[in-house]
Amino acid sequence: MSGRHGVSQHRGVNHAHGVNQHAVDDRSSDIVATPTIERTVATDVPRTAARRETNALSGPITVPQRVRLADTGFEAHPLALGGSVFGWTLGVDDAEAVLDRFAALGGTIVDTADSYASGRSESIVGRWMASRRTRDRMLLTTKVGRLPERRGLDPETLRAAVDDSLARLRTDVIDVLYLHGEDRDVPLEESLGAVGALIEAGKVRVLGASDFSPERLIEARVLAANGLPRVQLTTTRYNLMDRRPFEGAPELVAHAQGLGVLPYFALANGFLGGQVRRRAEVRHDARGSRLAQHLGRRGHRVLAAIDEIAFARDLPPATIAIAWLLSRPTVVAPVAGVSRPVQVEALLAAGSVELHRSELVELDRASA
């Protein structure tokens, strides 16, 4: 098993070329009061040059410019491929085809969890990395705490869950381990202590938090000041249709702590890809019901604003929706999933799109 990774640790912003394919999302110090956060001016981040590489098994790949993931030392393409559908709606062959396309276009962050398809998502990712020999250039993130057999964040469960994930992923180290939700039955210092031991053992590199409340993140930072591992990345639901839960205290805490935010459901279950605009087009399943909740006046207003910008730039709506997320001051890499390889390009293309102030204002107004 390989513990190395080829994700560079220099600062930079990743750029992919624009395309015109629609993408679908299948599904990421002490506190200082900050009254407002500037949203419409891009941060000036040093960049690295794009280059080409060839992998013996996966073929030629594009290595675009990259963005630094907070202060983790990692840099990567600012789009994470979500693996929640691997082993669920996508079988092994289809999932591997998506992963192949993602890697070939220079994608580097693969996001999964032990609870996705009861571990099958991790197994598919692990099999793919082993068969394509791509582990060294992937930044691998996974989550533990919600798999029924390994539920919770007590130290013993955490250690067992991580060992199980390592076996499924066919690697000896997890680049980013997220605690998958809070566990109020276990003192946070015990969970962080267990992660600290895993980091010392070389099984985990960076600690992240998934769906932690602002209060829990503050508690974690206080504990980190006393020598426990520090949360450096966080993932939560955030997109143009789901703004209010994050914008406010969670965003302020992330900003004050310098956390890198990787928002999941970046395309609101595919709604922001623009492929479904009428209730008659909605599938009668769980994902369809989640998508249908956006088919109201506000949803159509948001799609209209996206469409106008996408048409003017000759880009897919999904690219614009991801680019809006990348304009947010705390967001480092949105997490989005796809159902077909052809959809990957539209997601990665967002890394090269810098929206104008007027475009950001219009998207903010439409989604308010």
Score class of each variant (00 low, 15 high):
residue 160 A to F: 05
residue 69 L to T: 07
residue 185 D to Q: 12
residue 99 L to C: 06
residue 362 E to W: 00
residue 47 R to H: 13
residue 2 S to G: 09
residue 150 R to I: 00
residue 124 I to S: 02
residue 116 Y to L: 12
residue 71 D to K: 13
residue 27 R to W: 15
residue 25 D to F: 00
residue 345 E to R: 10
residue 211 D to P: 00
residue 10 H to D: 03
residue 54 T to K: 11
residue 286 A to I: 08
residue 363 L to V: 01
residue 111 D to E: 15
residue 244 R to Q: 09
residue 225 A to Q: 14
residue 68 R to I: 12
residue 309 I to K: 04
residue 221 R to D: 07
residue 167 A to D: 13
residue 151 R to I: 02
residue 315 L to F: 04
residue 178 Y to W: 10
residue 272 L to G: 12
residue 152 G to A: 03
residue 270 G to P: 08
residue 348 L to N: 11
residue 182 E to C: 09
residue 145 G to A: 10
residue 11 R to S: 13
residue 363 L to H: 02
residue 223 L to V: 10
residue 42 A to V: 09
residue 245 P to L: 13
residue 116 Y to W: 12
residue 204 V to S: 07
residue 260 G to T: 08
residue 107 G to E: 07
residue 298 R to Y: 10
residue 217 L to W: 11
residue 13 V to K: 00
residue 212 F to D: 02
residue 301 R to E: 13
residue 230 R to Q: 14
residue 157 T to K: 09
residue 258 G to Q: 06
residue 163 D to P: 02
residue 207 L to P: 05
residue 68 R to S: 14
residue 71 D to F: 03
residue 344 V to Y: 09
residue 49 A to I: 04
residue 29 S to Y: 08
residue 59 G to R: 06
residue 355 L to C: 00
residue 74 F to Y: 15
residue 190 E to A: 10
residue 188 L to T: 00
residue 156 E to R: 14
residue 366 A to P: 00
residue 60 P to A: 06
residue 309 I to H: 00
residue 234 T to Y: 07
residue 318 A to R: 04
residue 60 P to M: 06
residue 210 S to H: 11
residue 131 S to A: 14
residue 95 A to R: 05
residue 170 R to D: 05
residue 59 G to P: 02
residue 75 E to L: 10
residue 342 V to H: 15
residue 96 E to G: 01
residue 243 R to K: 12
residue 20 N to E: 10
residue 126 G to N: 07
residue 176 V to I: 15
residue 6 G to A: 09
residue 24 V to I: 07
residue 322 I to Q: 13
residue 44 D to M: 01
residue 238 Y to G: 01
residue 54 T to C: 06
residue 106 G to K: 04
residue 309 I to L: 11
residue 20 N to I: 00
residue 288 G to P: 12
residue 23 A to Q: 06
residue 191 S to D: 09
residue 68 R to A: 15
residue 164 D to N: 09
residue 129 M to A: 07
residue 261 V to Q: 03
residue 332 V to C: 04
residue 128 W to N: 09
residue 339 S to Q: 02
residue 54 T to E: 13
residue 90 L to S: 14
residue 54 T to V: 15
residue 256 A to I: 03
residue 68 R to H: 12
residue 91 G to D: 15
residue 45 V to K: 07
residue 258 G to F: 07
residue 91 G to R: 05
residue 18 G to W: 06
residue 162 V to Q: 08
residue 161 A to T: 03
residue 134 T to W: 02
residue 199 I to G: 06
residue 57 L to H: 06
residue 254 A to L: 02
residue 233 L to C: 01
residue 189 E to R: 15
residue 11 R to C: 12
residue 275 Q to S: 14
